[in-house]
Design a protein around this nucleic acid. Sequence first.
RNA 1: GGGGGUGUAGCUCAGUUGGUUAGAGCGAUCGCCUGUCACGCGAUAGGUCGAGGGUUCGAGUCCCUUCACUCCCGCCA
Length: 594
Amino acid sequence: MNKFRTHNCNELTKKNDGQEIILSGWINKKRDHGNLLFIDLRDNYGVTQCIIDKSNSSFKDLEKIQLESVIKIKGKVVKRSKETINNELLTGEVEVNINSFEILGACNELPMPVFSDQEYAEEIRLKYRFLDLRRKKIHNNIILRSKVISFIRNQMIKLGFLEFQTPILTSSSPEGARDFLVPSRLNPGKFYALPQAPQQFKQLIMVSGFDKYFQIAPCFRDEDARADRSPGEFYQLDLEMSFVEQENIFNVVEKLMVNLFKEFSKKELLNEKFPRIPYEESMLKYGSDKPDLRNPLLIYDLTNIFTREDVSFDIFKKLVKSGNKVRCIVTKNTKNKPRNFFDSIDKWAKEQGASGLAYFTLEKDKTISAKGPVGKFFKEDSLKEIMKITSAEVGDSIFFACGKIGEVEKICSLARTKIAEDLDLIDENKFAFCWIVDYPMFELDEVTKKIKFSHNPFSMPQGEIKNIDFNKPLNIKAFQYDIVCNGIELSSGAIRNHIPELMYKLFKVAGYEKSQVDEKFSGMINALSFGAPPHGGIAPGIDRIVMLLANEKNIREVTMFPMNQNAQDLMMNAPSNVDEHQLKELGLSIKIKK
RNA sequence: GGGGGUGUAGCUCAGUUGGUUAGAGCGAUCGCCUGUCACGCGAUAGGUCGAGGGUUCGAGUCCCUUCACUCCCGCCA
């Protein structure tokens, strides 16, 4: 028999009536009636109401005991009278009459309440994370995370994948995020890097002939945090498959996501076969490569309208002449919205750094006209053309943005979200997945004006190798894809380039000589020249998946021991100073810029 | 690196146009209370108003500087 408990705090029902039992747990709440004391005893599983009155010699001691102390009680289960049953608790039909108790772990005065639905400042929550994690909501989030991971693991194994660990101490890579560096004692002056992802290793696993690999992999990137991005470290469901095309990977991941989201959420899936949206189309229609498909609003290009004779909106016409684009968003049946609705959106756009959003509403008397500050610049025929392009109808309103293509995409994307929120168009009870496909292999770096890899340098370019025009690198598309849910990017993936000659050519475009590629990616490039299978994969972010399933907006709500925005662990005091002798042993000295 | 928000009791917050001794709820301590489940009632303690400087007869409130937390941009192949 266990000396601490015969039952947990969520087990006792009227079936246990009359039994002598032992419970251990935290004091969740006390209700002291002077001569009668109720104690809600809590553990991981639930809460049981325990009761003691002044005739018991332990009464005075229990009255004084701090909340959140850990105690063990011995007592007898009794049925509650009908009017005192608590239907909120699974154990609410019974209570435990305390005979004796023992303090197992005393509790000091609490820096923050545990039993409360109140929101608290992150700082105090992170410093006392062990207390925060006792609270119901986050406790359940962390349990959900555990269940999600074990579900994924089971599914992957069922699908024939093998789970492997890959090194945590590896080498720094020139592409991508900043690395976390670890100095090497045995090799003074040299550094390991923590992996940004097990990218090269998983490809090497394919070259080694293991066919299907997965791992719940820790990834480390020294970049700034966001609400949906932990500083420092996060987890991916890293997977890779040999002898596959893009669609084979989509099928595996779609099946996994559908099963997972059905298992752990009541929300409906908008599509069980996720739409495939080419990158260019996504940038046009949504202004973003991570569109929220719950949002019904679409973006249309109206640049050509502003070359017409019967449009006299000169500011936009001038901008269009010098190569700028005009994009618009149509809102259905908004003719009766107050002026304030439109102006507040225009004002908001200015706050976002745009030059504002022009707008008008389509009306019909005898002829079609546009009402609003810029309406007078559009003759009827031009309005008809706009209606044709955008499927807008009389009574609808149109918001315009004009600028360089990147700027106009960005503001339209933000406006699409903002307007949909204002009009309450987003169905919070749905999950809308999609694939974004056909990413460009290269892009122009705005600062250096040099060609660089737009995503992963190891991706396979599309088309026959002999037909690829390396002189027009910006036209080369890759078998590179993202999976997106509700506007959150869950993952990037790709069919990999397993042909060394092709790899050298692509790196050449991005400014790397053969010798540099050989040096920086020695493991990979070497391996690919000894019989590499065609392969590809993807790596959905575990934290973001759990965040969606838990209906949280912040990744720290599904992370057990997160760091704050400045990548500090307030509980463990990391990062911290180290002793001089540690530095000496590593051949390091500290120079801090002032 | 840049922009926004926040900072008042252990916790969550209020504090008007600059004006007497800075308040409330929860928590803590003490007392009363035998059916509560956010128990109830009464009392007490608890404050560098994030920090520094300035304006003023007078600053939680206005100005400047700075720090911390947070959200966003940059960044994240």
